[in-house]
């Protein structure tokens, strides 16, 4: 029996995702949540149906565009052969490669598989390891592995932090998060995530600015903030 996912993206995030107007990093976190969450799969389908119906029903003025030329150009192109359907099914049936960290194997959600296959190498710091996904210079998307019984030092966020739990469990001052749960921390939210004694955790982390460590000696980590970013 699958556990219930408790922390979902808000309706407006789901709407912007279906519309395609989120920035790529946030969209990826939402897409991976949807892969893991049947409830948001349904909502997302419904939103898409709704948006498409709005598109199809909108009144349009006649305009000067030469549609006939475009129509002729398109119909001069060849169509896919009918066997294409079965080819597509074969592609989608391909089994994903698991990723391995700390001698543990994880199968990632579909939306992350291609990027994760091209991930940078794992960087390790104590019980924490991160691997950046090659999503472009503007984005900071990484896999974050936290071993059992490990605490991420208390930190605050200079920008938006989105953490999607992919496997295992993590707790912080505000609650307990399991696979599929999506945490969104805005600038100024402070928290100290940690794993339990018996369970490690793999997350997707999206940061729009580096973390800033708050307490005592952990402030010494601030020069290391690039590690998490």
């Amino acid at each position: 029996m699958a556990h219930a996912i408790k922390f979902h993206p808000g309706m407006s995030l789901l709407e912007q995702h279906a519309e395609g107007t989120l920035s790529a990093d946030i969209a990826l976190a939402v897409a991976a949540h949807i892969d893991l969450c049947p409830h948001c799969q349904q909502l997302s389908r419904d939103i898409t149906t709704d948006l498409a119906c709005q598109l199809a029903q909108q009144p349009v003025k006649t305009n000067n565009t030469d549609w006939q030329q475009m129509l002729n150009d398109i119909m001069a192109q060849p169509q896919l052969p009918k066997q294409a359907t079965t080819m597509q099914q074969q592609v989608s049936a391909q089994q994903a490669e698991p990723i391995i960290v700390n001698q543990r194997e994880f199968i990632l959600p579909r939306s992350l598989q291609r990027l994760a296959a091209n991930r940078c190498k794992w960087l390790q710091l104590g019980g924490i390891a991160t691997a950046k996904l090659p999503a472009g210079n503007d984005y900071h998307i990484s896999l974050l592995y936290i071993d059992k019984n490990t605490e991420v030092p208390q930190h605050t966020h200079l920008g938006l932090e989105m953490t999607l739990v992919l496997a295992g469990k993590i707790v912080d001052e505000n609650g307990e998060y399991s696979a599929g749960d999506l945490l969104i921390n805005s600038p100024d939210d402070t928290h100290t995530p940690r794993t339990m004694a018996d369970e490690d955790c793999l997350c997707l982390s999206v940061l729009s600015a580096p973390l800033k460590f708050k307490k005592g000696l952990t402030r010494l980590l601030n020069p290391l903030q690039q590690f998490f970013y």
Binding site: A24, D25, A31, P38, R110, L115, P134
Partner: peptide, 22 residues
């Protein structure tokens, strides 16, 4: 940016497997 997040990553082309009814 040729290698970044693409539409194919973000949106499943097809259907999610059937889940128990919500």
């Amino acid at each position: 940016r040729k290698d970044d997040v693409s539409a194919d990553d973000l949106w499943l082309n097809g259907e999610y497997p059937e889940q128990e009814a919500d």
